[in-house]
Structure formats: C-alpha cells, structure tokens
Write a protein that binds this DNA or RNA. Sequence first.
DNA 1: TACTTTAAAGCGAACGTTCGCCCGAACGTT
DNA 2: AACGTTCGGGCGAACGTTCGCTTTAAAGTA
Lengths: 338, 338
Amino acid sequence: MQRQVTLKDVALEAGVSYQTVSKVLNGHGQVSKETEERIRAVARQLGYRPHAIARNMRAQRSFMIGYSWVPTGPDQVNHILDQLLTSMVEEAEAAGYHLLPFTYRDGSAQVEDYRQLIDSGMVDGFVITSVNYDDPRILYLMKRGFPFVAFGRSNPEYDFSYVDVDGADGLRQVVEHLVSTGRQRIAILAWPEDSRVGNERLAGFLQAMAAAGLEPDPNWVLRGEGTFEFGCQAASRLLAMPAGRRPNAIVTLNDTQAIGAMRAAHDLGLTIGKDIAIIGFDDAPMAQYLFPPLSSVRQPIRAAGRKCVEILLHLMRGEKPAEDKVLLKPSLVVRASG
Amino acid sequence: MQRQVTLKDVALEAGVSYQTVSKVLNGHGQVSKETEERIRAVARQLGYRPHAIARNMRAQRSFMIGYSWVPTGPDQVNHILDQLLTSMVEEAEAAGYHLLPFTYRDGSAQVEDYRQLIDSGMVDGFVITSVNYDDPRILYLMKRGFPFVAFGRSNPEYDFSYVDVDGADGLRQVVEHLVSTGRQRIAILAWPEDSRVGNERLAGFLQAMAAAGLEPDPNWVLRGEGTFEFGCQAASRLLAMPAGRRPNAIVTLNDTQAIGAMRAAHDLGLTIGKDIAIIGFDDAPMAQYLFPPLSSVRQPIRAAGRKCVEILLHLMRGEKPAEDKVLLKPSLVVRASG
DNA sequence: TACTTTAAAGCGAACGTTCGCCCGAACGTT
DNA sequence: AACGTTCGGGCGAACGTTCGCTTTAAAGTA
C-alpha cells in the first residue's frame, strides 16, 4: 500500500517544477517537446495517477451524481435497478463522473438528506426516481436551482428536466394488439388515483379504447394496489360471470398484478391465452418463464438511465440541454398469454 | 445555488479564527463555554456543513468503498442487488463512508480498474462479489495489501477476509427436509465444475445424502448451466423413466433451473409437490408466485452486506477484525413444491 | 546596438479542512 | 516578587491540484 505518486514526485524525477508537470499532463501551457516527452515518460514509469480528491478540491466540484431509490420489500424485487444503475454508471464514467448511492428515507428526513449532500459538496447533481405528484425533492431542488433530472414526471405545472417512459403509449399498444386479435371485451386493473404513473397508463388505455370505438364498462376498470393479491381478487370477480358476459381480456399495470390474474383464471379453469388474454406491464424477467409466458410491455430502462445522466451532465456544466423533457416509447412483447 | 458556507464564514461572524471554529465543531482543543456556544449558534444559523472533499483531502482518505458487480443479461434479473446495495450503503453511511459503484469489466481491464481507483485515491477499500477460483482481483488486492472484503470464497489457500453463505448447509437442509417427508430418490441439477459456489453446494448435498444413508446415483447428478433451458432438459431426462425408477425429488442450485424443471414435470403430466418434489435455491421473489409455489433456500443477503462492510471498516482503519471469515446460514423456505 | 516579441518554465496562490505549535493572560504557588 | 501552570485561542502548515502571472533567455526587428 505504497504512498500515492504525486506531481511533485514526477517533477523531482524529471527535474522541473511540479506545476510544469501539471501543465504537460493537462495539455495547457507552453512546454518544449523534449521536456514534455521526458515528463510523460517519467509519469508513466512512476505510474502517476492524478489524485481525484485533490483535483475535485481545486475544481470546487465533486464530479458525483447522487442517487437513491426506494428499497423494495423482502419478497419483492427491483428488476429495474441493475439495468438502471449500470447504464447510469457507464454514462457517468464516460464523462469523468461517478454515481453516489445514498439511503432512501421518507418524510422530512428525505429532503434533509438531499440538502446535506448539496451543502457538504458531495454531489454536483441528482437523478431522482419514484417521483409522484407534489414530490418534495423536486420542489426543493427547483427552489435551490440545483441540477437534477427526474426519471418520471410530476405535476404538469412544474418545469424541470425529466426522462419518462410513455406509459400511455404502452397501453395504447396493448389495446391495439388485443383488438387486432379480435378481443374487445377488455377489462383493466389499475392503480390508486394518487399514482401519477398509474393515471398516465390508464389514460392511454381509455384513449385507445375510445379510438377503437369501444366503450369501457366502468365496472371493468378496477383500481387497487399493484400486488399479486389484488390482481387475483379483482380477476376472480371479473371472471366469475358467465362466458358471454365476462371480459375476454384483462390488462394490468404491472406484472405482479398480471400474475395474480393468471392465478385467478387458472383456478377458475380458464385457459389463459384462449378463454382469456392477460397482458402485464414491466416485462419482468420472470414473465418469460410463467405458464403460459406472459405478454408484457417492456420499458427501455437502459436508454432512460443513459438519457437521465446525459441531460444531467449538461445541467451540471451550466448548459441548457437540447431536449430536457424526454419521453421514451415502450414496446409490447407478445407471448402466449394474449 | 449559493456558495458553500465555510469555516471562515462562521469564524468571521463569531469573531474568532477559523481554526478555532474547527476545534469547537470537532470537539478538540480548549475553548471557553461562551465562545463555544456562540460558535455553535452561528454555525447552526448559517447552516454550516463541513465540506466533505476538503475534509477527505486533509485526511488523505476518501471514505469511499468501491463496489462493482456483474451486470445481468437483458432477460435476467439480479434479485440480490437491491438488498445487497441497500444494506451496504446503510452500514457504510452509519460510519461516515459512502459506496462508489463502478462499471464491471472483464479480463485485464478489470484489475486495471481497481488499480486506477486505488491510485487516484478514490476509494479506501473494496467489496467484491462474484468471486471464483483464482480471482485476479483477490490476487491483486492481496499483493498490494489494499483493504477489501469478498462476498464469497475463493481458493482455500488464499488468506483474505470474506463473508459467505454456507451453501453446503443449505443443501443439507434441503436433503434433510426431503428425507423427513419420505423422499429418498433424490436427483440434483448442479453447475459446471469450475464454479466454486456450485461445488460447495453440491458437496453439502452429497454429504447430507451420505449422512442419511443414501447413495446418490451418479446418473442423477447432472451438471449444466444455471438456466431455465438446462433445468428443463435435465429434468425431462430424469423424469422420462417409469414411476418406480425415476427420482421423486429434484434439487437444483438456483431457482431458474428449478423453474425449468417445473416446466418439464408439468409437461410430463406430473403433479409437482406430489409425484415429484422440486426445490430451488436463492428464493427469488417470483418463487412464491409460481404454480405451485416453489420451495427454495433463502440467503441472508442483507446480513451479508452489512457484515462485509463491517469487516471492511475495521480493515480500512488498520484494525484486525474480530472475525474476518464469516459463514452465514441460509434457511429453507418450504412451499407447496416439495 | 538597443529594443520588442515569443517560447519555456518557474512561482505564488487558492480550494476548505485539521493538526500541532506557540503565545498571552490570568491564576496560583513558593 | 518571581516563577510555573493552565486556559483560551491564534497562527502556520500541509494535503495535491490547477490557474494565471512573472521571470528568464533566446530569437527577431529596427
């Protein structure tokens, strides 16, 4: 664990001042070809690596991007995290930045955590996820004018940079696919009204239904949590009716609901993909292994992560990004379930 | 985005030198009650937060822990990552440290990345995962004497700090459970021989079989990748024989294999949990939603993450941790599959 | 020859901390 | 009255950079 090689070490060896070494290695200043090459040779030989902290100290920047996420419960899985983190870290590193993960806390402590990271100079910007209406982080960061990008939208009247997946378009694709395969009796399992994401997806559904000339039965629009249990209960209710009067397709807003619905259909003796189509959202990796494999809407997570960081890099440099409100299209993955 | 409040700002306002402010806020030095309180009041009022980078600069430490992980493919999911990261970040933050995620690269670039982070002073230690025999990272870090903790074991002759889940014990629990429910014709789907983890788990299986007085049929120990496809194919072969001559239990080394095996059993018209018991490993969240729900071995991921960081904190402080080779017991979660 | 321009490299300063040494004043002791 | 001790706090230095100004010497121009 030998000591760090510094500019002074290189300078001593090369017989110049350490500032000159800095000039050479950064490409500034006037230095003769010979000394430049000598300095480079010595630096290489000694294995000089600039001390990141000293550099940040001098630059008055941390070159760090703060990120925290809502931890999932013990029996849940965040199948987004790996791809999102990997893509953000890659994009950040390519620009000389790093990602700084920090613990997620709720309530007033949350904004305090963001404040702490800003005031201690730990980060130059944030990527925030799991945003919803009236998100206190967004309000705080907007007020302070601190660079951040949200993965997800909030109140329409707020003006901030975001990247989001067009959930409405996803459900539009689902409806169009179902209609094109001759299914018109379509029910939907949605989320509670306080969910920005849920409302967006539901709106896309209703719009696509209208566009197809279908009037959705209000009793076939059920709101509840995005859980297996709700999916199972709601689908049981919907499918309890006789064949002619029940839906022949159930659309859900996430895969966990869809899996619950599959269980309900199975328990009622229905053949999924034939008697009833079921389509999920998220395309969780497990969807492909279900029986039958679940059709689902896949979100371009990696692209979203990259885009978030790309925009944030502009903001942190004080530039106005070319586009700072980005909507990415998801894609429907059709499998045997519908 | 106002400028950072520094010690000098507080000092000016309190009418003392900035070094005195530092003393007060760090609890060192002799300062009278009155000035101390005055300084504290001013600091609070001005919202002073120590500049982390300057502090690190002075301390010649980064208070960062490097961590990178193998990104999973597009249709896979890393159901460990969330819990592992969350627990490590929590443990690190409690000690004033942060986690620094960085991209995973294979081959010679990998050690170079570790080297770069060390030489640039970005990190004070590492947690490494996905270790296997002859892991070049372990060799490099051991040679440099740089603090690190591995989640997982490597060659037995290496001497380094690690935390691991006792996979052998997990399989022992599986065998004992199966035997206690009257199943003795047990097959196992294992991994290729170059997997340290796979060999450990298989060894536990064989040992438990022997302890139960059972001689495992060599043809019932199949090695292959931890994929759905291998699980399905291998199980098909095993279950193709007539009822009296085929296994009545299949143990796998991960859930994906188990799901493949479930599919094979299903396609052969067998009732899982009755005609054939199937038990997985990892207890992926989806296990509970399968049909029937999959029994599986659950690893104490959060405890492992916390323990890794705990040990690493000792190492980074130059202390010898009380225990630096930790083996955690997994637990079998019994569900309807066996 | 005297002066101006340019190239090459040195040097001081600063970023915000913390650490250790020093100094003055007040107090108590012989 | 002279001296030692303690308390309170100031001050210089350093961590490793980068930036910009200054200096020196050489080359070019009148």
